[in-house]
Amino acid sequence: MSEVLVAYATKMGGTKGIAEAIAARIRAASHEVTVMDAADVKSVEPYKAVVLGSALYAARWRPEAVKFLKRNAPALARKPVWLFHSGPLGAEVEPQKAPRKVRELAARIGAEQPTTFGGRVTPENAVGFLARKMAQGPMAGDHRDWDAIDLWAYKIAEHLVSAR
Rank of each mutant, 00 (worst) to 15 (best):
26 I>A: 05
80 P>H: 05
19 A>G: 09
28 A>I: 04
149 I>F: 07
38 A>P: 00
101 K>L: 15
56 L>N: 07
54 S>T: 09
25 R>A: 14
141 G>H: 06
158 E>M: 12
52 L>M: 09
3 E>V: 03
156 I>V: 15
33 V>M: 07
157 A>N: 02
11 K>S: 12
110 G>P: 09
50 V>Q: 01
121 V>L: 13
155 K>S: 10
154 Y>F: 10
27 R>P: 02
84 F>D: 00
98 A>H: 01
10 T>M: 13
23 A>V: 00
161 V>M: 08
152 W>V: 04
115 T>H: 07
113 Q>I: 03
59 A>K: 11
112 E>T: 13
141 G>Q: 09
21 A>S: 11
123 P>G: 11
136 Q>C: 05
29 A>T: 08
59 A>I: 06
34 T>R: 08
164 R>L: 11
16 K>S: 09
105 L>C: 05
124 E>F: 05
151 L>G: 12
111 A>R: 00
48 K>Y: 06
150 D>E: 14
103 R>I: 06
4 V>M: 03
122 T>D: 12
160 L>S: 08
40 D>G: 05
22 I>Q: 01
157 A>S: 11
47 Y>T: 02
37 D>I: 03
24 A>V: 09
27 R>F: 03
58 A>M: 15
91 A>E: 15
96 Q>G: 06
72 N>V: 00
8 Y>K: 02
57 Y>Q: 12
122 T>Q: 14
41 V>H: 06
112 E>P: 11
143 H>C: 08
16 K>I: 01
25 R>C: 13
114 P>T: 03
100 R>F: 14
90 G>D: 10
26 I>Q: 01
24 A>Y: 02
33 V>K: 01
160 L>F: 08
73 A>K: 05
43 S>E: 14
129 F>M: 15
11 K>G: 15
101 K>A: 15
